[in-house]
Amino acid sequence: MAQPKQQGIDISQLSLEQLNTFKQQFEEEVQVLSNSWQQLKLASARFTDSKDALSAIKTENEGKAMLVPLTTSLFVPGQLTNTEQVLIDIGTGYYVTKPVKQASDFFDRKIKMINDNADQVAQAVSVKRKNLESVLLVMQQKIGQMQGQAEKE
């Protein structure tokens, strides 16, 4: 996107139509970026959930009975037999067995990466919002001026 070029433009010199195009463009960008931010937050929450679930896999829980969810609405009774290793989905169809400690590190890594990305997106959103606000302000001023002139005539 040609953002850097726009920074140098004095928006008070632009016509209403041009300002309107910018307004629409910024609105769209804010929308898209806010959506990605939400998606990132959701992904981060999923990893946090997995990490929380992992905290129950510890040696003192070995042999305890549990209900294993086969689907979200169907459970079968089971027993926790292995508290050392878990199987993790690392993406694109690959799964890896890991000791609990390393699995927890894995989730920490993912959560940190996603949160860093989300922060970047949030920053971009606030920059776009500011741009949008200044464009709106100038538009209002222009419209006010035009109305003032129309009343004089």
Binding site: L87, I90, G91, T92, G93, Y94, Y95, V96, T97, K98, Q102, F106
Partner: peptide, 20 residues
């Protein structure tokens, strides 16, 4: 795929890898 590659490289000798 880059992320998966990095994770695969991190797998230790006793870690098992499965493909779905």
């Amino acid at each position: 795929n880059d992320m998966v590659k990095k994770e695969l490289e991190l797998v230790e000798a006793d870690g098992e890898i499965f493909k779905l």
